[in-house]
Simulated scan of single mutants.
Amino acid sequence: MITGNRLKDKVAIVTGGGTGIGEAICKKFAQEGARVVVAGFPDDPVAKVAKEIKEKGGTAIDFTGDLSTMADAQSCVKLAVKEFGKLDILINNAGVFPEVNLLQDYSEEAFDYMIKNNLRSAFLMSKVALPELHKTKGNIISAGSEAGKIGIAQNAPYGGTKGFMHAFIKGLAVEQAQFGVRCNLVGPGPIDTAWTHASTGPMDSKMVKTMKEATPMGRRGTPEEVANVYLFLASEEASYVTGALYMVDGGITVAKGGVGGQADSSMKDEPDGELKLKHSKEGHTEIRE
């Protein structure tokens, strides 16, 4: 059901839109009046998310492909323009988290997989989308990470890819302002998705416990809490915001030591939220061909 108009008449592409934070962004944007292209890999539940949006009265279509290839990146943008007549917002949310390991043991396969899906897809989607965003004076919001700001042990290459994204979006913001395009980044900390559970991702139970203890708020964030920040940056409310890195991390990037146990009980309780998310734990962490 459309409950707001903060993105009324806007058209958005959300990469990695089928699961985790991406699902929340798609549903939040649709709830605020946007027409959404839910983009992802062929085995992601992008069609299900688009269907769930339409069942609630929103407008969405799905796109499947490998957005790290020029052909699929072009096809995704062309689909948005063909179906909805324009493109206002590009969300570079897609990314992978395939391995946790010390660098001396980190596989070349996992490193190459991250370069392809964390960097190349965002580069190509931004490159292809910009001519359309120039027409609408639109905006790009990319996914960073706490790891891109402070680094992360046993995930040094992942943090490196996100550090690239932090610098990339700042550079885009400066060069694209002349065309009326804003560019920002959202940097999640530990979020309640498949990536941060030992049963569904590469972290072990000790790492999960340490992660929560290192977060001043003493818990994971929810996908909807992250989507709320994407919504603000995509909306006209952020008209004077470009080149910004918004950390949605429960304070983990400024924490010193295991402070999570000291958090007030009101901070440890996850908000109920409004979105009915069905795919938040379905995000892939293994390497896919």
Rank of each mutant, 00 (worst) to 15 (best):
N5C: 07
K10I: 13
K10Y: 14
V14F: 06
T19I: 15
T19C: 08
I21C: 07
Q31D: 15
Q31V: 06
V36D: 01
V36S: 00
D44I: 11
A47N: 12
K48M: 05
A50H: 02
A50S: 09
E52T: 13
E52F: 14
I53M: 12
K54T: 14
E55A: 14
G57Q: 10
G57D: 06
A60M: 10
T64D: 11
L67F: 05
T69G: 08
M70I: 14
A73R: 03
V77H: 06
K82D: 10
K82E: 15
E83T: 14
F84P: 02
G85F: 01
K86R: 13
L87Y: 07
D88S: 02
I89W: 01
L90A: 03
I91Q: 10
A94K: 01
G95P: 03
F97Y: 04
P98V: 12
V100R: 05
N101G: 01
D105S: 05
F111A: 12
F111V: 14
F111I: 15
D112V: 07
L119C: 00
A122K: 01
F123N: 07
F123P: 04
L124C: 04
K127Q: 12
P131A: 07
E132T: 14
K135E: 01
K137G: 00
N139P: 09
I140N: 07
S142I: 07
G144Y: 02
S145N: 03
E146K: 00
K149R: 10
I150N: 06
I150R: 05
Q154M: 13
A156E: 11
G159A: 02
G159Y: 03
T161Q: 11
T161D: 10
A167I: 10
G171D: 06
G171K: 00
L172R: 04
A173M: 11
V174E: 10
G180E: 02
N184G: 01
V186S: 06
P190M: 01
P190C: 00
I191E: 06
A194S: 04
T196W: 12
S199K: 15
T200K: 00
P202T: 12
M203L: 14
K206P: 09
T210S: 07
M211G: 02
K212L: 15
P216E: 12
R219C: 14
R219Y: 02
R220L: 15
P223S: 09
V226F: 05
V226C: 08
V229T: 14
V229H: 08
V229A: 00
L231H: 05
F232N: 03
L233H: 08
E236M: 04
T242P: 04
D249E: 10
G250F: 07
G251E: 11
I252M: 03
K256V: 12
G257I: 13
V259I: 15
Q262G: 13
Q262N: 14
S265L: 11
S266Q: 13
M267E: 06
D269M: 15
P271V: 07
E274N: 11
K278R: 04
K278E: 15
G283D: 05
E289D: 15
